[in-house]
């Protein structure tokens, strides 16, 4: 009998926990599938960016990119445009930046990217980037 009472109680706790957790996360991070985002990264980003810490290619390492201040990857020579951009790479900022041509998002940037218009792929990609730290 006691056991039977505990089951609905635990279910309620779990439901509330899930709700609170979801409310505290970025909606973009929640929407994306990080596993699918890994494939998007390989297709869209991996030629110019590595996810290894300290490994810069034509573009800077994306290790720990979510939450990082713009223009601060070690040993990478940024454009003046990005050095002067005083933003933080939040999931919202990444979503906005990557959904349009890089030259439009940050005029003067070295980055050559036409933007990712598929919102599902963009969400997946940002979710994946959120796991790289």
């Amino acid at each position: 009998m006691t056991k039977l009472l505990w089951v609905p109680f635990l279910r309620c706790v779990a439901a509330v926990g899930l709700y609170l957790g979801a409310a505290s996360m970025s909606p973009f991070a929640l929407a994306g599938d990080a596993s699918a985002g890994s494939d998007v990264f390989k297709t869209e980003c991996s030629e110019c960016h590595s996810v290894k810490e300290g490994r810069n290619k034509k573009g800077p390492s994306l290790f720990g990119i979510v939450g990082r201040n713009a223009g601060t990857a070690p040993n990478y020579k940024y454009s003046d445009a990005l050095l002067q951009a005083k933003w933080v790479w939040t999931t919202d900022k990444l979503h906005s930046y990557l959904s349009q041509p890089a030259k439009q998002a940050n005029p003067g940037t070295k980055m050559k990217y036409d933007g990712l218009t598929d919102s599902k792929q963009l969400d997946d990609l940002i979710s994946y980037l959120g796991t790289i730290h």
């Binding site: 030629e47 810069n56 290619k57 034509k58 040993n75 990478y76 020579k77």
Partner: peptide
């Protein structure tokens, strides 16, 4: 295609480091 662009860019692309 990335290798083709590197060749077209005259083998000059760099990590800037």
């Amino acid at each position: 295609p990335y290798g083709m662009r590197f060749k077209l860019n005259g083998y000059t692309d760099t990590d800037g480091n």
